[in-house]
Design a protein around this nucleic acid. Structure first.
Length: 267
DNA sequence: ATTGTGGCCTGCCCGC
DNA sequence: TGCGGGCAGGCCACAA
């Protein structure tokens, strides 16, 4: 499922779409248009525009739009979210060979948003479950520091100011952007912290360890190519044992999300 | 303001 | 073999 590493791969792929004139934008499903601006208006606005730059902020992909002087798209941004099952294709090519938990059945039935370029190529958001979406001018300021370059001080601030479970805090995109359920479990497992620990109860060494493992985990997963390639992942099922010490993992809901952790070494 | 809960959405998998 | 229910979780609306 798309978390930070997947969206980072999408960003790389999206570079190929930059500078190409959009002949037509279409929604395969009207529900995929999110935010204030309606799908039809978005479609009108995008016609004739180009994607000038692309960046990733957490799990959000943002394009700066270019348009003819006075064109409706001038100065606007296009935001893409991928939910749990969304993938990006440019000119029919995917960034990742296979998205875990998403079907890889070859079909265009789930093409929820399509940009057709004047050179004949396309940019497609394919999302079976419709949990992603397209939004004009997404509120980037509402997102916390990106998990990939959050500083120790920023993380400490995010943690100290709340009594919710540390896992919930890590997954709160307004506090730290880019961490989803799988990466949260992986990072906490590596940092030896129980997911339900109160965020504000972390000691300075806890915070330091968490910051270190957050960065190290993301580096590993970026290199491996997906959020599902963590060390804990193979054990994340009933009866699964901690890859570090062999203890049977515990399972419960933390912050509304299915969570797996080792009762021996995560405290 | 902060925190918790449920719904959206559909594919997949299990048990009957 | 088909079917129903449970589950997956990013994000958002809403309630307390």
């Amino acid at each position: 499922m798309p978390e930070l590493p997947e969206i980072e791969a999408y960003r790389g792929l999206a570079q190929r779409a930059l500078g190409r004139r959009i002949d037509a934008a279409t929604f395969g499903d009207p529900r995929f248009a999110r935010g204030e601006v309606s799908g039809p208006r978005l479609v009108r606005l995008l016609r004739g525009a180009t994607l000038r730059t692309v960046r990733r902020h957490g799990k959000l992909l943002v394009f700066d739009l270019d348009a003819p002087p006075g064109g409706p798209a001038a100065g606007h941004r296009l935001g893409l979210r991928f939910g749990m099952t969304g993938s990006l294709l440019v000119d029919g090519e995917a960034a990742l060979a296979r998205l875990v938990f998403a079907s890889d059945r070859p079909t265009t039935a789930w093409d929820r948003f399509v940009l057709r370029f004047s050179d004949g190529g396309t940019l497609v958001v394919r999302d079976p479950r419709l949990l992603g979406g397209v939004e004009l001018d997404p509120d980037e300021a509402a997102l916390g520091p990106d998990a990939l370059d959050i500083t120790a001080a920023q993380l400490r601030h995010a943690l100290e100011t709340s009594a919710v479970a540390v896992k919930t805090r890590l997954m709160d995109q307004r506090k730290v952007a880019g961490i989803g359920n799988l990466i949260a479990d992986e990072v906490l497992w590596r940092a030896s912290l129980a997911p339900q620990r109160r965020s504000s109860s972390l000691t300075t060494p806890d915070q330091r360890r968490l910051h270190h493992h957050l960065r190290a985990t993301l580096d590993d997963l970026l290199q491996r190519g997906g959020a599902h390639l963590g060390d804990l992942m193979p054990a994340r099922h009933p009866g699964g044992r901690c890859p570090r010490d062999g203890t049977e993992l515990r399972h419960s809901t933390v912050g509304g999300r299915s969570s797996w952790w080792c009762p021996r070494h995560q405290r």
